[in-house]
Simulated scan of single mutants.
Amino acid sequence: MSRFKSFDGVEIYYQAWLRKSALPPVVLQHGYVANMRVNWVVPGIVRRLNLAGRSVIALDARGHGRSGRPHDPASYGESRMAKDISCLLDELGLEEIDLVGYSMGATVALLAATQERRIRRVVAGGIGGATLHLDSRYRASGRKALANAMLASRWSIRDPTLAGFRLLADMVWADRKAMAAQALAFHSKRIPLERITVPTLILVGDSDPFASHPQKLQRAIRGAQLKVVPGDHSSVLVKPGFQNAIVEFLR
Rank of each mutant, 00 (worst) to 15 (best):
Y13H: 11
G129Q: 02
I57Y: 10
R47T: 13
L168F: 02
Y14T: 06
M171R: 14
S6D: 00
V27R: 09
R139M: 11
P230Q: 02
A34L: 13
G93E: 08
D206Y: 12
D206W: 07
A163H: 15
M81P: 03
H71R: 10
L94D: 05
Y138E: 13
R3E: 15
E96K: 15
I85Y: 12
G223W: 11
V33H: 00
V238Y: 03
L146I: 07
R120G: 07
G9Q: 05
L111H: 09
L162D: 10
A163E: 05
D170H: 04
L23I: 08
S156I: 06
D159R: 02
Q218M: 11
P214R: 08
H30E: 01
W17M: 00
M179N: 04
V100N: 02
H233K: 09
L193N: 02
S103C: 07
V10Y: 02
I157E: 02
S156W: 05
I12V: 12
W155T: 12
L49N: 10
R219P: 00
S21C: 07
V247N: 00
A181W: 14
P70Y: 14
I196E: 02
L151F: 12
L89Y: 09
A185H: 09
V204P: 00
M104A: 06
L201V: 02
G101R: 15
F7K: 13
V100C: 04
H187S: 03
N244Y: 06
Q215H: 15
A34C: 15
L51W: 08
D98H: 10
P160F: 07
F210M: 15
L168Q: 13
V33N: 02
L134Y: 02
D208I: 09
R120S: 11
K5V: 08
A74Q: 10
S103L: 13
R195W: 01
Y138H: 15
A181E: 09
R143I: 03
E91R: 09
P199G: 12
H233D: 03
S6P: 03
G164V: 14
K144H: 05
Y102H: 13
I127K: 07
T114M: 11
G44A: 07
E95T: 14
S79Y: 12
A163I: 09
A245H: 12
T161Q: 06
L18V: 14
A61S: 07
L28V: 06
G63D: 01
I191D: 01
F249D: 01
S21Q: 08
L237H: 04
K216D: 12
R19P: 08
T197W: 05
D98P: 00
G223A: 11
G9S: 11
Q115G: 12
A147H: 02
V108K: 05
A174V: 11
W173V: 12
S156G: 06
S234H: 11
A58P: 06
R54E: 07
N148P: 03
S103Q: 08
L59W: 10
R117V: 11
V10G: 00
P25K: 10
G223K: 11
Q115R: 12
A183M: 15
P240G: 05
P24Q: 08
Q215V: 12
E248V: 13
R118I: 10
A109Q: 08
V41T: 07
H30C: 09
P209F: 07
V26K: 02
A163V: 04
D232Y: 08
Y13G: 03
D98Q: 05
G31F: 04
K189F: 12
W40C: 10
V41H: 15
R154P: 15
R120M: 06
N50A: 10
A109M: 10
I157V: 15
